[in-house]
Write a protein that binds this DNA or RNA. Structure first.
Length: 523
DNA sequence: TGCGGAAAAG
DNA sequence: CTTTTCCGCA
């Protein structure tokens, strides 16, 4: 049973790490609990075992290459119990991420895609991790430093305006509090280069870019409460230097991030996410994220924030405790699982039921075939609620599954025990802003390349539309709208959740909020 | 190869 | 909703 197919496994309890309840909540994992493809990809990328199949592309952070498409598809199919899976299908799923801005294709490079970190949160991030004090865990290879600057498209930082102060600037090592503020602020600079030292804040902005733009939509806004990402420190985790997840070697602030979320952020969906498409403005085109370690760190933090703010697809983030994976990592037995029969699923159904059902038999797969497959890290929470626990240890049997398995943790424990810091979202203090409805202006659009702009425009439209009219939208828009809607809903939930937790954030953010609100309103 | 619409499944 | 399945189009 791999987890994949089966439902939940129980975790084992043992070692578990406990995550806050909210981590287990449905809200946290919206929708289907099933693992999402991007998450799966990330898992593969984290494991060395799969390095030959899929790996981070050097040079560009977040960019990865599927070296063996068929294998990846197989693994994915296995995980989802879709024996018929192939790269064509998998890639379609990947393409759906384009609009969500979770991923984008690196043009010109075969089988190469890039995560849009602006949108994703990587809980695992060590950076994020926070130790109370801070040190950063080390291990990670440095983030690439390369060139280092972020180049974001102007889009990202749409209007630069905005909020004004953006960051104060200190260095990285700020207190978490500061972080919060920063986050809150969004803004950005665009691409410029910053010095390394530049703040990540700016980076943060990047993440948040959309806010401005979107700002509006008061209606939409949900204010999310402040959330904090849970972070764990896990040394060792992503060692891959190319991995965006890599830990930062830097000593910096290690503390946790608190991620406050700015109300404003939340709603707007991604309008500007960074999406470098080649077509984009020249500057953008390259797309890229290059950063120094520090920057990366900041960036990540910011991202985290942003994610929250953006509220990506709901499913996207935090919910997975697994994701956070704590310390478990050390053990994945690479071995493959032996063969275990997978549950077959019915033949492909696909679109209109095609007739060809192949025999399911084929389906039966022996997993082992794939040497690669192995334990993967985490999966999202197990499907069932059971709480499981985590499996960290579960080794053996589980392992086999491990590749897919979910890790669950025992719920409700005090995370602190673990040593990881886990932060829950704070309750929001502010009240929702409201509604000023204004249509957003579309700054920068001009700069964008057509395709991109197109997209953006769409988004904007959507937002606007959303605010005003819901139903009339064309289907596509409507979908997007829904998406947004979802988020809103989540927000609400989050709040609740947040409340549970104590947070720090509130105080900090207050100042910010007003600004945002104002901005929105003004528009 | 890659893209994205459409329909359907869960 | 997200992903799977198909498919037609570059």
């Amino acid at each position: 049973m791999k987890t994949g197919c089966s439902i939940g496994e129980k975790p084992k309890g043992g070692g578990g790490y406990h995550f806050p309840d909210w981590a287990y909540r449905a809200e946290s994992s919206p929708g289907s609990r099933q693992i999402q493809l991007w998450h799966f990809i990330l898992e593969l990328l984290q494991k060395e075992e799969f390095r030959h199949v899929i790996a981070w592309q050097q040079g560009e952070y977040g960019e990865f290459v599927i070296k063996d498409p068929d294998e990846v598809a197989r693994l994915w199919g296995r995980r989802k119990c879709k024996p018929q899976m192939n790269y064509d299908k998998l890639s379609r799923a990947l393409r759906y991420y384009y609009n969500k801005r979770i991923l984008h294709k690196t043009k010109g490079k075969r089988f190469t895609y890039k995560f849009n970190f602006n949108k994703l949160v990587m809980p695992n991030y060590p950076f994020i991790n926070i130790r109370p004090n801070g040190a950063v865990p080390q291990s990670a290879p440095p983030v690439p430093s390369a060139s280092s600057h972020f180049h974001f498209s102007p889009l990202d930082s749409p209007s630069e305006d905005a909020k004004g102060s953006r960051f104060s600037g200190n260095s990285t090592a700020q207190s978490s509090r500061e972080s919060l503020n920063e986050v809150t602020d969004r803004k950005t600079n665009s691409s410029e280069q910053d010095d390394a030292s530049s703040d990540w804040r700016r980076n943060a902005d990047l993440m948040a870019p959309r806010n401005h733009v979107g700002l509006g939509h008061p209606a939409l806004q949900k204010h999310k409460s402040d959330l904090m990402l849970p972070v764990f420190s896990m040394p060792g985790m992503y060692a891959d230097p190319h991995s965006p997840f890599a830990m930062s070697p830097l000593p910096g602030r290690g503390s946790l991030l608190n991620l406050p979320i700015s109300p404003a952020l939340s709603l707007t969906p991604t309008v500007f996410s960074y999406s470098p498409s080649p077509g984009l403005s020249p500057a953008l085109s390259g797309s890229c994220f290059n950063f120094t370690t520090e920057e990366m760190k900041h960036y990540l933090q910011a991202q985290a924030c942003s994610v929250l703010n953006y509220h990506l697809s709901p499913r996207t983030f935090p919910r997975f405790p697994g994701f956070m994976m704590a310390p478990r990592q050390p053990h994945f037995p690479p071995e493959e699982q032996s063969s275990f029969p997978i549950k077959l699923q019915p033949p492909p159904m696909g679109r209109k039921n095609r007739e060809h059902h192949q025999s399911q038999e084929e389906i039966q797969i022996t997993l082992q075939q794939t040497p690669l497959a192995t334990a993967m890290k985490v999966e999202p929470i197990s499907d069932d609620e059971r709480t499981s626990d985590d499996d960290l240890d579960s080794s053996a049997e589980k392992d086999f599954q491990s590749d897919e398995e979910d890790d669950s943790f025992s719920p409700r424990e005090d995370p602190s025990k673990q040593g990881h810091a886990f932060i829950k979202p704070a309750t929001p203090s502010w009240t929702p802003v409201s509604s000023a409805s204004s249509r957003p202006s579309y700054p920068n659009v001009g700069t964008v390349d057509p395709s991109e702009s197109n997209r953006i425009t769409k988004d904007f439209s959507i937002d606007a539309v959303t605010v005003e009219k819901k139903d009339s939208l064309p289907p596509k828009l409507r979908l997007k709208r829904l998406w947004n809607g979802d988020r809103q809903a989540e927000v609400a939930e989050d709040r609740g959740e947040c409340r549970k937790v104590s947070c720090i954030v509130n105080a900090l953010r207050s100042p910010v909020i007003p600004a945002e609100t104002k901005a929105v309103t003004d528009s």
